[in-house]
């Protein structure tokens, strides 16, 4: 089913984009200047207070319009933003706010000594990010990020409301054509559920892997 594929594609893209924004955002919030920090605070507050549906509508129309206006203003050709790219960008923007908070918390949970040690070795900030901060915060961030991934898969359904072709809209159209509403919505629910359960299984494996060499959760408590 093409719709399911699209849904997974968007969820994956949005989560990756969200992770990028989240990492940048968390760094900005922790180490950035006062202006950066305030702007990020505004960003995370707004995104977390306004319904995703409203944000999606707003960004879907306004976002692409603004990009194009900016491009024409600096003399470039206007670009055509595909539904897929817009969907990923919009959900990624929303996910970014949540993952900013998750990653910030995870970075704060890294024992301070590790970062100080890295600095004492004279590591450059980017090397430190790559070698120390990101790997060390991973086990702390994974439960939160896993939750975000599950939210992302479910939020893709909201894109149906702006007419983007993914699982939920595909279902609605198929149901409309065949009139078998109950069957199709039920089937879609099962597909989403399988996706969630499968993700849960994978996440469990990843979490175990990222925690390797650390005391197990039970002992840590």
């Amino acid at each position: 089913m093409l719709g399911l594929l699209h849904s997974i594609e968007i969820a994956l893209g949005a989560t990756c984009l969200g992770l990028l924004i989240g990492t940048g955002g968390a760094y900005g919030k922790l180490y950035g200047g006062p202006v950066v920090r305030d702007l990020l605070a505004v960003y995370t507050t707004i995104v977390r207070a306004v319904p995703e549906l409203v944000l999606i509508l707003l960004l879907y129309y306004a976002g692409t319009d603004l990009i194009n206006q900016a491009l024409t203003a600096i003399g470039y050709q206007r670009i055509d933003i595909s539904g897929l790219a817009a969907g990923i960008a919009v959900l990624g923007f929303v996910q970014g706010a949540y993952s900013t908070e998750v990653i910030r918390g995870a970075i704060l949970a890294i024992p301070q000594g590790q970062i100080e040690a890295a600095r004492a070795y004279g590591m450059s900030p980017s090397l430190m990010l790559r070698r120390i901060t990101l790997p060390a915060m991973l086990p702390f961030a994974i439960p939160g990020l896993a939750n975000l991934w599950l939210i992302a898969t479910k939020d893709t359904a909201l894109l149906a409301v702006v007419g983007f072709y993914e699982l939920a809209l595909a279902t609605r159209q198929a149901a409309g054509v065949t009139k078998a509403y109950f069957t199709f919505f039920f089937a879609a629910g099962v597909l989403y559920l399988l996706l969630s359960l499968f993700s849960n299984f994978l996440i469990g494996r990843v979490e175990a892997w990222s925690r390797r060499g650390m005391p197990s959760l039970k002992e840590a408590r």
Binding site: A157, V161, A168, Y181, F182, F185, F186, A188, G189, S196
Partner: peptide, 21 residues
């Protein structure tokens, strides 16, 4: 698990249009 694993939108449509049909 079922409620948390499926989008609310699908649950809503299943209840309203699914049952309605």
């Amino acid at each position: 698990t079922v409620i948390r694993g499926t989008p609310l939108l699908i649950q809503l449509w299943l209840l309203y249009y699914g049952l309605g049909s």
